[in-house]
Design a protein around this nucleic acid. Structure first.
Lengths: 231, 231
DNA sequence: AACATCTTTAACGCGTCCTTAACGCCTCGC
DNA sequence: GCGAGGCGTTAAGGACGCGTTAAAGATGTT
């Protein structure tokens, strides 16, 4: 048995079983989920190397799963859906999916795409939890705390914090921040960002007027410093 | 203007032209080739960030191109082919292709898959660091340090340092420096430059009054020397 | 349909960065 | 040895971007 873990999410039992059988025949370790919330729970739990995700799910749609997953994880995701319209494909790919197959698909092709996705897997091992002297952010649970107290973050704030924290110490241009958060077409209009940065700082920074963790690089973008750095 | 280079390989001229137009509209730098040998030559020549490759090519098939390419390069490859049989897809994906689209395909979907492939590239790219005995500049992280201490560079200073460092050891005329930093219309007016060079030297040079790394060539321009060179 | 939450938009004060000008020094030519 | 032009340096002005606030618009929920 290989040590590659794959999570398959689909609400149709027979498809779930067929995929599981085929993947296990190739010696992958397979977990399964049949709705969106269970999927997110299992992702945090088993920490799979790859996700095969149906779009039409109960509880939480596949797109929702993908969206919240992408705030803290870069594992490859292959979408498997009955919808074959352009808008669906483009939306899923732009939300961070790595591949998109339309049902019905050939098992052989899916397996080849699984191999392709796993081949370029990079060992980033980014932790889902970020701890600073002043606050903590747990992306897998979706909980942020400041000095023990839970602070509420909106979806957009989660995404912005996710992008910045994910590339810790690195200067993130507002251009790439915008396109990673709002999608590839909103690569200017930085007016939004300033407002949300204010909110994030008010919620997390010990002294929002003089940010230590979420720093501004004027004219370029923002940078997250995990230990607060010198000041 | 983006600095992402894409090479498109197809033997049908109208497809080549359509793809080129669409990609350039999205501000990618596009090169084209129409047979396998030309493709390999251009890959080595322009060093593209992504390859869009047709399978049915003269001289050398797309699969051959892919095979020999994969012996030295890991750039993402999107296959675009009229064949939609499983064996073709599986073979191409297992030879190292990242994605496979069947003709005819929608331009929108291709563009989304291009974005998806390029998105992954960012994680793989190694950081572009310039190291001298006295200071370091990391362009990918956006960090400059002098003797371990972080020094702050303004956007303009980043650009100027970038241009000079990029052509290390070579003389850069103030004319080309100006047009690369400020745009093609500001190719005289060297008053700006002198001020900013002062700032850069004060921040990076160990002895700003006697620059070792950012040297002046009177009447012509500037030159960056990575090891400080002879005094 | 009313409410609550989140996102977007607009406006304003403030700080940073870019520009501009002035001046002294150096180098080179006469 | 003298003058001119280019360069380095400094300081001050203004333009622009950023933080902040408040309110309108969008979205989802009861």
């Amino acid at each position: 048995m290989s040590d590659v873990r794959i999570l398959v999410v689909d609400d149709e039992v027979q498809i779930l079983r067929a995929l599981k059988t085929n993947l296990e025949a190739r010696e992958y370790a397979v977990s399964t989920a049949s709705d969106g919330e269970e999927a997110l729970r299992l992702i945090a739990d088993v920490n799979p190397d790859l996700l095969i995700l149906d779009l039409g799910l109960p509880k939480k749609s596949g797109l929702d799963v993908l969206r919240s997953l992408r705030t803290w994880s870069d594992i490859p995701v292959i979408i498997v859906s009955a919808r074959n319209g352009d808008p669906d494909k483009i939306a899923a790919l732009d939300e961070g999916a790595d591949d998109y197959l339309t049902k019905p698909f050939s098992i052989g092709e899916l397996m080849a795409r699984v191999r392709a996705a796993l081949r370029r897997r990079v060992q980033t091992e980014q932790s889902a939890i970020v701890v600073t002297p002043d606050f903590e952010v747990d992306f897998s649970k979706g909980v942020a705390t400041r000095r023990g107290e839970v602070v509420h973050l909106t979806p957009l704030e989660w995404k912005i914090v996710g992008v910045l924290v994910h590339s810790e110490g690195r200067l993130v241009t507002q251009r790439s921040l915008l396109s990673e958060v709002w999608g590839p077409h909103y690569d200017n209009e930085s007016g939004y960002l300033r407002v949300h940065m204010t909110h994030i700082r008010r919620k997390l920074e010990p002294e929002p007027a003089r940010p230590r963790y979420f720093r501004t690089e004027p004219g370029i973008g923002y940078r997250f410093i995990a230990d607060g750095g010198p000041r």
